[in-house]
């Protein structure tokens, strides 16, 4: 017998496809959103040849890595920001009385198939950016080009989950979590050296955003880090993602315990 989660996932996909018109609309909207972001990057390079010392080809690689990681995370867990709704309509209670883990159930129930368009688009963009940047391919770089977006997706997912969990304590926290998730998407889309001071320290290294696209891109491009750190840091992406996932799991457990002790 296949895993119950697979059955749940398939059911979720069928549910979403039952709203054909709005499904197509969301698919379209998600693709256009990414188009607008890309347009912004291209416009910036109209007024400057280099951004933080990076050429347009290099910047597009960073942008595409970030976009792919974010799109994957958004597809997998992006809907979890609706957890407040789930608490209110009692879905969380319904999940708690079933013999499966709550977070896996929630992620499956939340699987946003309609965001699949963005993943496809971002992946195509990434492929194009890799070609455009004329990456000098080695087996290690091939592996990193695959591992990096996945690690980045795990990091973003961890931030999505941890951010949504805050809703257990602070109901109106919705938009605050956006500052980290959508803000993180924008942060990772540009070379980290354009930021400075505490802002860079907190988000690039504290939140781990530098490991989503920037350091992996440096490895792929064979460029030294303008910040002076070893370029090999790009290989640390999976480890950073692992730590983030562990922290998010801890926050989630604490949140559920809070929910089960307060019922709100």
């Amino acid at each position: 017998m296949a895993s119950p989660y697979l059955h749940l996932l398939a059911a979720q996909a069928r549910s979403q496809l039952s709203y054909r018109a709005s499904f197509a609309l969301d698919l379209f909207g998600n693709v256009v959103t990414l188009g607008a972001d890309l347009l912004a990057v291209l416009i910036l390079f109209r007024v400057t040849p280099l951004l933080g010392g990076f050429t347009i080809a290099e910047e597009l690689l960073i942008f595409a890595l970030a976009a792919t990681a974010f799109a994957l995370a958004d597809l997998a867990v992006g809907n979890i920001e609706r957890i407040r709704l789930y608490v209110r309509i009692g879905l969380l209670d319904a999940l708690l009385v079933r013999p499966l883990g709550v977070l896996p159930q929630l992620l499956v129930v939340d699987f946003g198939l309609r965001r699949a368009g963005r993943v496809v688009y971002a992946a195509v963009l990434l492929a194009g950016a890799l070609v455009y940047a004329q990456v000098d391919w080695t087996p290690g770089r091939v592996a990193l080009a695959i591992v990096a977006p996945i690690s980045g997706a795990v990091l973003f997912s961890a931030i999505f989950v941890a951010g949504a969990t805050v809703a257990f304590w602070w109901i109106e926290s919705g938009e605050l979590a956006n500052a980290l998730t959508y803000g993180g998407r924008d942060f990772t889309a540009y070379p980290v050296n354009v930021y400075s001071g505490w802002f860079r320290r907190v988000f690039a290294f504290g939140a781990g955003f530098a490991f989503v696209a920037y350091y992996p891109a440096l490895v792929l491009l064979g460029r030294p880090d303008p910040l002076g750190l070893p370029t090999g840091l790009g290989w640390a992406s999976p480890a950073v993602a692992g730590v983030a996932a562990a922290v998010a799991a801890f926050v989630w457990r604490t949140g559920v315990r809070q929910y089960r002790s307060t019922g709100s």
């Binding site: 017998m1 119950p4 059955h7 059911a11 499966l100």
Partner: peptide, 8 residues
């Protein structure tokens, strides 16, 4: 059907 899978 889904509940059959969930509860095995």
């Amino acid at each position: 059907t889904l509940l059959r899978h969930i509860y095995r």
